[in-house]
Amino acid sequence: MKLFFILFFLLVLSVVPAYSYLDPGAGSMLAQLIMGGVAGLVVLFKLYWGKFKSLFVKTDSTTPEKDNSSQTE
């Protein structure tokens, strides 16, 4: 039940539009880790921590994953 609460929370929280620079398989991988349990929760925490940090640290959003962008857009 706890897991479901987290998942539900995630659903509501994560309303970012999708213009992916990463291979679209990344979402699938993360979803599987969450389905898989323990490891997934650690990953989830890391991701949200990264997101939380980015609220305070200004980064140039065009610099990372530059190489892949031309393939997807």
Binding site: L7, L10, L11, S14, V16, P17, A18, Y19, S20, Y21, L22, P24, A26, G27, S28, M29, L30, A31, I34, M35, K46, L47, G50, K51, S54, P64, E65
Partner: peptide, 22 residues
Amino acid sequence: FLHVVLPVRMNNLAQNQKIDSL
């Protein structure tokens, strides 16, 4: 939720991460 919605949400979330974190 697990097989359709979650992968899409996770993908959206992952796009803001640096590749090496994944």
